[in-house]
Amino acid sequence: MSANTALAEKYRNNFLKEIEEQVEMGDWVKMCMQCGVCSGSCPTNFQSAWEHPPQELFMMIRAGKREEVLTSSSMWNCTSCYNCIVRCPRKLPITHIMHGIAEYAHRLGMAPKMQPTRFFSGLFWKNCTHTGRVNELKLSMGLYFKDGLGAGIKEGMKMKDVAIGLLKAKRLNPFELFGGHKCKDQKGIQAMLKKAYEIERSRKAAKMAG
């Protein structure tokens, strides 16, 4: 049984409880009073419209729309601007709930595969934890070449002028491709992160069993 099926089975007909127990800050969802200030304050919802803005996602969770919520591209439109957090009259940590639902959907393999910010988010975390510090050049290259070599060259050409500007200003270093900045104690960082994932997994499993 896949992790997704197991969780869906365990929390059958109670998606709100699933979100409360398995998603970071998920226990705040029930506090939403549907005023819509978050949706009206969101820059990307304002510019290009989310499929389901935050307050709608909260109601969908309470209505048990598991599949629709977890496969939605919405949470991935969050720019982490924190406008929703500071304006929410009930002080829901909405930015963190959006990140939490996105992380959960990604963990279960339900998040839309081709969503570019989902891809970039995973790439960023791998990039910065690999050596302990971000390698900006590898990060950009990883994004442009996500759909293969041909598409990558095309994407790279589109960014040519931006890259030349940064190179001239010495804010992009081509040698980052062969190493770049890193922490000394990379071993310690890897061991510490491995432990952190182990603990987090066991805490979530205990909630599911409890």
């Binding site: 970071e24 982490s80 930015t95 990140h99 939490g100 996105a102 992380e103 990604h106 998040a111 910010t117 989902r118 970039f120 988010s121 995973g122 960023f124 975390w125 791998k126 910065c128 934890t129 302990g132 510090r133 971000v134 922490c183 000394k184 104690d185 960082i189 510490m192 992160l193 952190a196 994932y197 603990i199 987090e200």
Partner: peptide, 26 residues
């Protein structure tokens, strides 16, 4: 000495809660 990345907000797809805080705690 030997400071590491904070994880930034955008790492959320795979950062989880504890690993992200552990990075800053280091």
């Amino acid at each position: 000495p030997d400071w590491n990345c904070c994880g930034a907000s955008i790492g959320y797809a795979e950062a989880g809660e504890l690993p992200r805080h552990v990075m800053n705690a280091r």
